[in-house]
Simulated scan of single mutants.
Amino acid sequence: TAVLMQNHGPFTIGGTAKAAVKTAVLLEEVARTVHISRQLGDPLPIPQDKIDSLYDRYQNVYGQ
């Protein structure tokens, strides 16, 4: 779980310290990607059904 707090920055939690750090690293990578995307123009939104499908694949197929 990750939370971005205004005027502060990210907080992450996880079942273990390793999981919390992994979440923090992923959060930073996503923030970097969004920042670069916005410099190139308006990012195109991904439809929610595609997000749900990709999340399900990541959780249940990828790396298994």
Rank of each mutant, 00 (worst) to 15 (best):
T23M: 10
F11H: 02
G41A: 12
F11V: 00
H35D: 10
Q39W: 01
I46N: 08
F11A: 03
S37M: 07
T33S: 10
K50I: 00
L27A: 11
P43A: 03
I46K: 15
R32S: 09
G15M: 02
A17S: 07
Q64S: 04
I36Q: 11
V21M: 06
T12K: 00
A19G: 03
E29F: 02
P43M: 05
V25H: 03
E28C: 07
A31D: 08
G63M: 11
Q48I: 15
G63I: 10
Q6S: 12
I46E: 13
V34R: 06
L40A: 15
Y55I: 08
A19Y: 04
A17V: 02
G15V: 04
L26Y: 08
L27C: 11
I51K: 13
N60L: 08
K50S: 10
A20Y: 04
L26G: 05
P47F: 05
G63Q: 12
V25F: 03
Q48C: 00
L44I: 14
N7Y: 10
N60W: 08
P45K: 14
S37V: 01
A17L: 07
R57Y: 14
L40G: 09
A31F: 08
Y55P: 01
L44F: 06
S53I: 00
L4E: 09
Y62L: 15
A2Y: 07
I46Q: 13
M5F: 11
R38W: 03
L27R: 07
K50N: 06
S53Q: 15
K50L: 14
R57D: 06
K50P: 00
D56Q: 13
V25W: 04
V34G: 00
A31M: 09
G15T: 03
V21F: 01
I36S: 09
T1A: 10
E28L: 00
G9Q: 01
H8G: 01
T23G: 00
A24F: 03
K50M: 10
V3S: 00
N7R: 11
A2F: 08
